[in-house]
């Protein structure tokens, strides 16, 4: 039994195809990551799966229910933390939680207990009676996550859950997400820009770019796809160096990205000397050279030819903050 089945799902906005023929399945109890740059179509996908946006074509089933025909049952099965804020700022944290609990028809005594429990968990209990407009960005995010868990959904969507959180809070949340998944068996679908997050939390990751899935597997397997270790070289004469490296028979995969050359190779240590020699033979300067085990960042680079930079995420943090300021 699958928690989520998606078949040829498409969403167009006018002529523009935001989600282009997605097909995937998520097992019950899995933590599944959608990893991709800005505008990849992650939020659009989640909006369709959570019945907030009709699809253009294709099919999807959430907890066995058709997203276009059985929306009420889909909604009963899911919890969601939206990418953009969705709190009532005039209400207190407790009232926001209480509103949610009532909407999901949780009986009063259970509701009160769980609200208290969850607010303690996200460390907002002391401030539960303050209006949300007095909260910081991180506090709001924590409140939204607590709220998404209140009705114990079978499937939880987290759209960039840790965007804008400090590293400490982020770690905290990661632990909690893991715990939820292990102890309660909640299926979790999260989107993220943070490689580290996908790596740590997700059983499987789909890398999505321009509305298409370009790779989908466990983080481990994705890294193995690259083939061995990664050598990254920064050089001022990268084009010349690139051609020189191409001639070496032992180097199977060498790629040029921005200012960097990346080489994927087994047992990289044994080849470094040779590479450096080639450089000096050709009078090519090397600014820096590093060897590392492949990361998801390399995987992304490998499949898309581009990097997901952390800047991208921080640019979005800024956007989120700006929007908040404007709203005031």
């Amino acid at each position: 039994m699958y928690a989520i089945e998606v078949e040829n799902l498409v969403r167009k906005f006018g002529d523009f195809t935001a989600v282009n023929d997605l097909t995937f399945r998520i097992k019950k109890g899995e933590v599944f990551g959608l990893l991709g740059p800005n505008g990849a179509g992650k939020t659009t996908t989640i909006s369709m799966l959570s019945t907030m946006l009709p699809s253009t074509s294709g099919k999807a089933f959430v907890n066995g229910f058709d997203i276009s025909k059985d929306q009420d049952n889909v909604r009963k099965s899911i919890g969601i933390v939206f990418q953009d804020q969705s709190l009532d700022e005039e209400l207190t944290a407790y009232e926001n939680m209480d509103f949610h609990g009532r909407l999901y028809r949780i009986p009063k005594s259970t509701r009160q207990k769980k609200i208290a429990h969850l607010l303690k968990l996200v460390e907002l209990y002391d401030k539960k009676d303050n209006q949300v407009k007095t909260y910081s960005g991180g506090m709001r995010r924590r409140l939204e996550i607590a709220r998404g868990l209140l009705h114990e959904p079978q499937i939880l969507f987290l759209d960039e859950p840790t965007l804008g959180l400090d590293p400490q809070t982020r770690n905290h949340l990661w632990d909690y997400i893991e715990k939820l998944n292990k102890e309660k068996g909640i299926t979790i679908i999260l989107t993220t820009h943070y490689m580290e997050e996908a790596d740590k939390l997700c059983h499987r990751i789909a890398i999505i770019d321009k509305g298409k899935i370009i790779a989908m597997d466990s983080s481990e397997n994705l890294k193995n796809d690259i083939g061995g270790d990664v050598i990254t070289i920064d050089s001022s004469q990268r084009d010349v160096f690139y051609s020189a490296l191409k001639t070496l028979p032992e180097i199977k995969s060498v790629e040029l990205h921005d200012s960097l050359i990346t080489i994927s190779i087994q047992n990289a240590e044994q080849h470094v000397a040779r590479i450096v020699n080639i450089a000096s033979e050709n009078n090519i300067g090397i600014k820096s050279l590093s060897i590392h085990k492949p990361t998801l960042e390399d995987v992304f680079l490998h499949f898309t030819g581009r990097t997901i930079r952390e800047e991208e995420a921080s640019a979005k943090d800024k956007m989120r903050m700006m929007r908040k300021v404007r709203r005031r």
């Binding site: 969601i80 939206f82 969705s86």
Partner: peptide, 10 residues
């Protein structure tokens, strides 16, 4: 302000 989503997704 996004709050409508919270209501509509319930």
């Amino acid at each position: 302000f996004g709050f409508l989503k919270e209501t509509l997704v319930a």
